[in-house]
């Protein structure tokens, strides 16, 4: 896959799908209907989310977040979904900080644990 960071090429077809639960939990204190939340160490929503971010190549992690939250010009093209009691908009705000030290703490294309320019 090399240098590419596209969904399906360099990234899974639904990037950070495994982060949906963690984001819903942290943003609104809700769970995604039908998916019981594990509190087993190593298998919490945060663990699963961070593992997926960790597995993405360093230079593709912000691009994965970008796919996950969608672009303003195409609000329907995102992995995030509106949930009962938890609209997409605040989930999107939370997802932007997933790579930072207090969350998954992974390095990105900026060689630092943050993403820039996600407001597009």
């Amino acid at each position: 896959t090399g240098q590419y960071c596209y969904a399906g090429m360099g990234l899974p077809s639904n990037p950070l799908e495994g982060c949906r639960e963690y984001v819903a939990q942290q943003t609104c204190g809700v769970t995604i209907a039908g998916s019981p939340v594990s509190s087993e160490p190593g298998d919490t929503p945060k663990d699963r989310c961070c593992q997926e971010l960790d597995e993405a190549p360093q230079h593709c992690r912000c691009e994965a977040v970008r796919y996950f939250i969608g672009r303003r010009s195409h609000p329907d093209w995102s992995v995030l979904k509106d949930l009962p009691g938890c609209p997409k908009e605040p989930q999107r705000d939370f997802a932007k900080v997933l790579v930072t030290p207090g969350q998954c703490n992974v390095l990105t294309v900026h060689n630092a644990p943050y993403c820039l320019g996600l407001d597009i």
Partner: peptide, 27 residues
């Protein structure tokens, strides 16, 4: 990056405070 945090300060993972929307997030 700091601005990204400011917008989510009221959410459950941070201060967990209700807002004008009667929920712990801002829109």
């Amino acid at each position: 990056v700091q601005m990204d945090f400011v917008r989510i300060l009221v959410t459950p993972g941070f201060c967990n405070l209700t807002t004008v929307h009667n929920t712990p997030y801002c829109l």
